[in-house]
Design a protein around this nucleic acid. Structure first.
Lengths: 344, 344
DNA sequence: TTGTAGGCGTTATCAC
DNA sequence: GTGATAACGCCTACAA
């Protein structure tokens, strides 16, 4: 006893009836296939328009076996880094005639997994997971059902999962070397929580400091860790590397509130080089990743898997340090791209 | 013994076969309906787990007539205002057993329309459009197929479309009055482009200034309008109201680059009171909207429509001015909630 | 150029 | 408790 809703969307059968043709012909005409008389085609399109017909994508993907949609699961909508990746995904998907839908992982492994599940149930043609917090197990499982691409660093990406990332070790090392070159010696690394990405960046910093016989501390702070941040700022460090721009911006705010001057007392470096880095004052020195290019590459990976590729992709893009006021006394901007590679 | 499934994802028929039951029984068991012997139910769940079975949501929504998914179409992923609304939507949807997927309108009416179309083709149970740039026509059309809620101001929302907004006129008026109270007299309003939201805010400012016999200018600037912004800053104004926090932050950056001091020379007010307002320096005075509450209300609207409501909802929430350093000489924060209403 | 006849995976309505 | 069987809306051979 389905309570028939008022104005249930019309089906292709009703369109066909109105145009006086069979449903298969209507289907072909609406899909834009050739082999339909022009006059008939016009009648069909007219009927569809009059009825407000809209294809039922559930029925279509059931019949075709694929949906024409790629799903993107984001770690955190509020972080502008992800907006950049999404832009790349959308551009490439659009060029290939694919639609894009987005799922929000809300920074939680559980929720990320749920969103990936939803995408798979929707039978998307591929899942692009922009997060390094998705449980490896659920990624591997997902990859059994559809092409899965992770746009982030994974310690040990499963064989069935493609990975598109930037070289976090090199990026963080470059950032640390920049600080060393400026004469900073007491560095700290601040991150939200441990992840493969975070670990790789820490390792990069360690590499740089090992070379000159220095050590540094790593701090994990929670979302509202103002006190913790203040403590770090007051601990005698002269430079802080943050795991991303949002984190760096928080640190900058706390520094200001506590009267710690940046960069005079403490130099500050973010990661991702999001628009945020340019907006704040002083401008934030940050390690840039080619977000758009990575997003595009992820869609390519999905397409390649559909074309039969089975060997996993491990694309690593070169990061580029963008120097701004938060590490320099003068607010003058210097773009110091360390190197640029395709990563392919 | 868990054989690795290969090829197409397993269907409920394979699960049923493996468990030695009919597909109807498997369906009932997997759906958690009662009327299945416990032992049988366990066998079925085991078989499903071993095969890595995942329901085909296309088939389900085809059979059921609804998808259990609400679609959210955002004007701009990069603007943190939308993240707040999404959080509210997700919370409420989750409590009601609904999934949420997101579409990215990329700030363009065309793309917004396309994303709404995609949602309708996916037969979502409701579309929540968080933007005032979606063409009214396409909203009205969409509302013929599914409940549509706009979370933004529309000049004349179609009868079939629910609207959840905050009182932009009052919010902007309050902001302008705040500036007047501080002794500012030469105000300017800066927006990206005209929209119902933008118009309402302009009107609110006009209302406040009319009361004291002052006038002001409205400027539309494009995405990379640094020169235009610099021009406005140099035009002799002593206060600027921006259409949103992102825009305000841009203005602040340009002001800094051109040596215009905020708030000493020019006071600055944003809109939305996003996390961004707190992050930058000086803190940004901003008109807050209850994003989460509005997101939740939107999902309620969808549910109500499903329960048979036909009269449109026109919910208006009270904005609240949050005063920070960008309008005060001292960087001390004063939370000045003008009033708080449920908007129901 | 057009029509007919399955079939896609699931749910729902019956019988048994 | 359990199992056939008919939709659901569309696509795709295959016929006409």
């Amino acid at each position: 006893m389905t309570p028939i809703p008022v104005g249930r969307p019309p089906t292709i059968i009703e369109v066909a009836a109105r145009a006086g043709v069979s449903k298969s012909l209507a289907s072909r005409a609406l899909r834009g296939e050739r082999g339909v008389a022009d006059a008939t085609r016009r009648r069909i399109h007219l009927a569809a328009a009059e009825l407000g017909y809209r294809i039922n994508s559930a029925a279509r993907s059931l019949a075709r076996g694929r949906s024409g949609i790629v799903g993107v699961v984001l770690n955190d909508i509020g972080n502008p880094h992800f907006a950049g990746v999404v832009a790349g995904v959308e551009a490439e998907a659009c060029e290939r005639g694919l639609r894009t839908i987005i799922g929000h992982g809300a920074g939680s492994p559980t929720e990320l997994t749920r969103q990936i599940e939803t995408m798979l149930e929707l039978r998307v043609d591929g899942v692009i997971v922009v997060s390094s917090w998705a449980p490896v197990g659920s990624l591997a499982l997902a990859a059994r059902s559809a092409p899965v691409v992770v746009v982030a660093r994974l310690a040990e990406p499963p064989a069935g999962v493609d990975m598109v990332a930037s070289d976090d070790v090199a990026g963080a090392r470059g950032a640390a070397e920049h600080l060393l070159a400026l004469g900073r010696r007491r560095l700290a690394y601040v991150t939200r929580s441990t992840s493969a990405t975070s670990d790789a960046r820490r390792h990069g910093i360690a590499t740089a400091l090992d070379g000159v016989g220095l050590s540094f501390e790593t701090h994990s702070v929670s979302a509202d860790g103002d006190e913790a941040l203040a403590g770090i700022l007051a601990s005698g460090v002269d430079a802080i590397l943050a795991n991303n721009d949002v984190m760096a911006t928080e640190i900058l705010r706390v520094a200001r509130e506590r009267g710690v001057s940046v960069p005079a007392e403490v130099a500050l470096i973010g990661y991702d080089n999001t628009p945020l880095a340019r907006l704040i004052s002083p401008g934030l020195t940050s390690v840039g990743q080619p977000q758009r290019a990575m997003g595009r590459r992820a869609v390519e990976c999905v397409a390649e898997r559909h074309d039969g590729r089975t060997e996993p992709v491990r694309a690593l893009y070169e990061p580029a340090l963008v120097v701004r006021g938060s590490t320099l006394a003068a607010p003058r901007e210097i773009s110091a791209a360390s190197s640029s590679g395709s990563g392919r």
